[in-house]
């Protein structure tokens, strides 16, 4: 039997492949140049943007805000310098992003798991489409929704928190009268990061090697146990990234409507 395999005539393929590769080399080089150039261009543009912002902002950063005539009144009034104005904003962004992640990521991962591993194929398709649709909603809509729906909706709950859990520094009064709280911002942000985190998580979950899923199932794992044994370990490296980029991309925006 092995004799047969050995004596089978060659097809002359290797020679073709070699010449083909030689002919392709200039094209390879052009393409390499193009793609490297495009990649480099992104870095250059980003660096240029950063540089521009820093240079144009330098006078304001350096100025004494109490004496500078442009900065001592209006929205910037009452701030000693740039940092005293900006640090609370940065803090707010980080804080609300954290709230958004804590609320949004588990929900997004739950939806993604349902779509990738529980729902029948048709339902999964429809759900995936709906989530993507959510991503297409302009962020101004989410902002308005936060102002007109979430804020008043949360007011009673916040009142309760201040009254009963006020001894925890986190829930200390005084309460915001308008409901423009970190919690409201965080909830709006959570909904905004939902689509991107869901769809990226879904993609990662779907890529779990079938081999590992079957390994777990063949040991007598239930579906949830299979997810814990095969899907999560595989996804672990991937999912923290989408959650973060999802919130990073969104968190700058809602503050415009505060």
């Amino acid at each position: 039997m092995s004799n047969e395999t050995i004596s089978r005539p060659g097809t002359g393929r290797p020679a073709d492949a070699t010449t083909g590769k030689a002919g392709g080399r200039p094209a390879d080089r052009v393409f390499l140049g193009l793609s490297t150039g495009s990649a480099a261009l992104i870095m250059v543009i980003l660096a240029a943007v950063a540089l521009f912002l820093i240079i144009r902002a330098a006078p304001a950063i350096a100025a004494n805000w109490t004496t500078d005539p442009n900065l001592s009144h209006g929205t910037t009034a009452g701030h000693a310098d740039f940092w005293s104005y900006v640090l609370p904003l940065i803090w707010g962004t980080l804080w609300s992003s954290a709230i958004a992640l804590v609320i949004g990521a588990p929900i997004a991962i739950g939806i993604a798991l349902f779509i990738s591993h529980y729902a029948p194929r048709r339902l999964a398709g429809i759900l995936g489409y709906l989530v993507d649709l959510l991503a297409a909603v302009p962020s101004v809509v989410f902002g308005l929704w936060g102002i007109f729906v979430i804020r008043p909706f949360l007011l009673p709950a916040e009142q309760w928190l201040v009254q009963h859990l006020g001894w925890i520094p986190l829930f200390e009064g005084p309460q915001s009268g308008t409901g423009s709280t970190m919690l409201a911002g965080g909830i709006v942000l959570a909904v905004m990061i939902l689509p991107i985190v869901t769809s990226i998580s879904r993609e990662i979950f779907l890529q779990t090697p079938r081999l590992h899923e079957e390994a777990a199932l063949a040991l007598g794992a239930t579906r949830w146990e299979m997810i814990r044994y095969a899907v999560f370990p595989y996804a672990r490296s991937g999912w923290s990234a989408p959650s973060c980029s999802g919130s990073a991309g969104r968190s700058g925006r809602p503050w415009r409507w505060r």
Binding site: P209, L211, H212, E214, A215, A216, L217, A218, L219, G220, A221, T222, Y229, A230, P233
Partner: peptide, 18 residues
């Protein structure tokens, strides 16, 4: 699930949890 706990299986390609 209980059936598979009684009837084990080894696959063509080795598949330990990596």
């Amino acid at each position: 699930v209980l059936v598979r706990r009684q009837v084990g299986m080894v696959f063509q390609r080795p598949n330990p949890f990596p």
